[in-house]
Design a protein around this nucleic acid. Structure first.
Lengths: 206, 206
DNA sequence: GCAAAATTGGAGTATCAACTCCAGAATCCG
DNA sequence: CGGATTCTGGAGTTGATACTCCAATTTTGC
């Protein structure tokens, strides 16, 4: 298990290739069903290379969680940086719907799938995932609080609770889209929450 | 693979014991991580007994899906039979929150976990699960339509879409509760949707 | 350029999981 | 009861999977 700082450029590339391949396979077929051999083949590496960078499957899973959390939060941050109007929420929804459409509804949420898969079998992974979800939730909460501070959201609304509900809508919507192979449930779930925010706004402003 | 009709009372009991044990283990640790041996031990049966009733693991998984779908819909039906007022929705939320609290947030939704686990690795299971979710959704939709027909819900609301959003809130809430080991996210997600319905009602009735 | 360190290839092992087989015991039905 | 059928126990087989080992090669820092 080499120190991350002391990695050759080539070594870093190999390590990255392994993580990316593992992330894709684990998203598509679940963690337990993804074998080390699958990952080796997909990344084009030999067993010794994989075990050179990771002590075992658990460590690799941990790296995959970090990777997916970073990916997911980057996508969010791109949209949520200015997630402070109803319109920007609409664009955020479009981005997510487009992504699942392109994936043909395979895999669901990169973080949600891992969470469902690992929460009850790997306590360490569960904590790691809970942290990632907390950051995501905070991102949404901040945007809503921003909206509230400028009067676009009712003053008595609770941004924290609304952020939880919104994140739940995204996760539940993604699950239903995955099982139905149809992006509509995700769209409907998020749209309904946006509509809710909209009504919270309008019912106080007038 | 004996005909279900030609099962001795004892045989039926053994078969049931296997399905129940498999369902519990698969909920707690996922399908792939649950070995036939685990199930044998939990049900107190020998390999030959298990393979006497099921051709293989796939068939057992299928039986588990049916079992969990029946269980879940029964719970729903108990509450949703008269899910036609805002108050009854509150009681429904209480029932679900109580269940996850008792389970200490382990496993999440019996159907949702299976869906996330199997949707992308077992097409047959995916279809089976999609059917179960469709029935669940219909149950919710019927209650909302009933409310609408008696004016407790805005006439221009779409019970079909609201049912999808509500089911997504339940699934997403359960996932967040599972990963955080805290029933609150479920409660918040469902409460927010109930609040939404409430506002849809009030904003038109006055 | 050269030694030290990092990286790679591939053959090999130990374990475990799914599934099989068959003989013996219990149960049903007349 | 008694024969046919259903049910049960346990040892054994096959294949796959996570992981190891070590020698050969490339890269790095001076």
């Amino acid at each position: 298990m080499p120190d991350t700082r002391r990695l050759t450029r080539k070594g870093q590339a190999t390590r990255d290739r392994i993580v990316v391949a593992a992330a894709r396979l684990m998203l598509e077929q679940g963690v337990a069903r993804t074998t080390i051999e699958d990952i080796q083949a997909a990344a084009g590496v030999s067993p010794s290379q994989l075990y050179h960078y990771f002590p075992g499957k658990d460590a690799l899973v941990s790296a995959v969680i970090d990777h997916q959390a970073e990916q997911a939060l980057d996508v969010q941050q791109g949209c949520l940086e200015r997630l402070d109007t109803i319109d920007s929420l609409g664009r955020w929804r479009d981005v997510m719907v487009n992504i699942v459409t392109e994936m043909q509804c395979v895999g669901g949420c990169p973080l949600g799938s891992l969470a469902s898969d690992l929460s009850d079998s790997d306590p360490v992974a569960r904590t790691q995932l809970a942290g990632a979800f907390a950051r995501w939730q905070q991102l949404i909460r901040d945007g809503l609080a921003e909206m509230q501070s400028r009067g676009e959201l009712a003053a008595d609304a609770d941004p924290g609770e609304l952020a939880v509900a919104m994140l739940a809508a995204v996760q539940g919507g993604l699950l239903l889209s995955q099982v139905n192979r149809d992006p509509e449930p995700l769209r409907i779930a998020v749209d309904t929450m946006i509509d809710h925010l909209h009504r919270l706004t309008r019912s106080v402003v007038p």
